[in-house]
Simulated assay, not measured.
Amino acid sequence: MQLLQDLKQLPVPVFLSGVSAMRHYLGLPLAPMTTLTLAGDLVTVARNFAEPQFCSVPGVDAVVEHPDTTMLIRCAEQPPSPDAGTTPASSISSWHYSPHSSTYIDQASVYKQLRGGELKTEIASADDAVHAALALAQLPLQPSNPLRHPPAIMSGEIGPHELSRDAQRILLEGILGGEQARTALEHLHDWGWIRAFWPQLAEMDATEQGKSEHPEGNVWQHSLEALTHRKTLDIRVGLAVLLHDSGKPYARQTARHRFHLHADIGADLASRLLGSLGFPPDIIRDVCWLIRHHSFPGALAKLPQHRTAPLMANPLFPLLLELYRCDLSATFRGPEGYYSACTVYRRFLKYEKNPFRDPAGKKLLNSLVE
């Protein structure tokens, strides 16, 4: 991978750390965010990385964008060493990988966890909870019993005041960038984290749906199930899948609709939530567009051309189809509706720029051709 080659060329010691080093050991690809430890200070970061950004995230001194991933850099006075094992044996962040020497550094017997397939860690602070949640989302390890009911969170000792908005955003991005995002979110919910930090999402767990249409459960359970069907870890898709039905708890029931205008309500809620966490405006715009139109592909074959063509012309439409597929798959229904929508979209793309046919494929009279 290009990132490791680039890190290897740096004149200063730099290491993959924590979950990122564990993923490398397990042969997993880079996650959308990668944690690094650099032997040096912020001046060293500025000298060796282009356009570093600085944020108020515990344990992160700089954020740098790389074509492969977003690098979260922690500065240390000395390189990690197995002789400097001052971290508790349960700590996830005490496992490192050196691109320079192609070796692993285990400061706290993490190797036993990796070999045993079990994640063991204690949660005594918000930072511990962040590391644990990211590990649950990004590593195929089974959580040990102490992870299931961390007292510091469940007693209210850890709350939103413990974590900046930047840290909360990076946590949510890191979870949705993991293959086991559902597992991490389930644990955060059980810990009381969701209710404490993101109460808008907690309301989804209190909103039931019809068993005939949603045998998988309530709105929260449906959203978590939908996450398991993603084919891409694009953050826009992850956020849209998680939040696509977030408007249902606030929607009113009418004679024709159980959750009237829930997509519009959900898009507005997502805009406020993601804005409060500091997500970039373009990400918020795209996610809200996907949420607002997430039911549209299901009606694609029935709607007139003048209504479907403008939406299908949007560059985000392939992501909308992916959101629809996840939503449909979570209900345990067959994929026929998704395939039907794909057929209509392919036909639209085929004839969109054809001067002799309209986007539906119907022939047009061209005055220059008889």
Rank of each mutant, 00 (worst) to 15 (best):
K112N: 14
E122P: 03
R195F: 01
S81I: 06
Q180N: 14
V110M: 15
Q9A: 08
L30W: 14
L30Q: 11
V43L: 14
A132W: 05
R230H: 01
P160I: 00
E225D: 11
G238S: 11
Q138E: 10
Q253V: 12
P335N: 09
F279P: 02
D6S: 13
M71Q: 11
N218T: 04
H293D: 04
L141S: 05
P249H: 08
V237H: 09
L365K: 14
L311S: 03
G247I: 06
A108V: 04
L319Q: 02
E203M: 15
E157S: 07
K353T: 14
K350P: 00
P335D: 07
I170T: 03
R307K: 13
V19W: 03
F259A: 03
Q113N: 15
D190Q: 08
D68L: 09
L323T: 01
P143I: 10
N354C: 15
Y111N: 13
G159S: 05
P67H: 13
F49D: 08
L323E: 02
Y111Q: 15
A240T: 00
Q5P: 01
H244K: 11
C75L: 12
K302M: 06
A360R: 14
I105N: 02
F279C: 08
H131N: 07
Q138S: 10
V64F: 05
Q168N: 10
D286M: 11
P249K: 01
D6Q: 15
Q142L: 10
E179M: 12
R346M: 07
A299Q: 09
L188T: 07
E208W: 10
E173W: 08
P29C: 09
H222Q: 12
R230W: 04
Q253D: 11
T228K: 06
S94P: 01
F15Q: 04
A330H: 07
H262Q: 15
S56V: 04
L28R: 12
L72R: 05
M22Q: 13
T37F: 00
P143F: 06
V287L: 02
P160A: 09
R115V: 04
K350V: 01
G40A: 12
R292N: 05
T207N: 08
N145Q: 14
A21N: 09
F15L: 02
H306I: 02
Q9W: 05
Q168V: 08
N48C: 11
L316A: 11
P355F: 15
G247S: 04
H306K: 09
S155K: 10
C326S: 03
H100V: 00
Y111I: 15
L243Q: 02
V14R: 00
R23S: 06
E65A: 06
G85C: 04
L147T: 05
L42V: 12
I284T: 13
P304T: 09
R325W: 08
A89R: 13
D166E: 08
P310L: 03
S246H: 00
Y324C: 06
H257C: 13
E77T: 15
Y338Q: 13
W289F: 10
A360S: 15
C288K: 06
Q53H: 06
E118D: 12
I284P: 08
G334H: 12
Y111V: 15
P82W: 07
V45S: 05
L16F: 01
Q209R: 15
F332L: 15
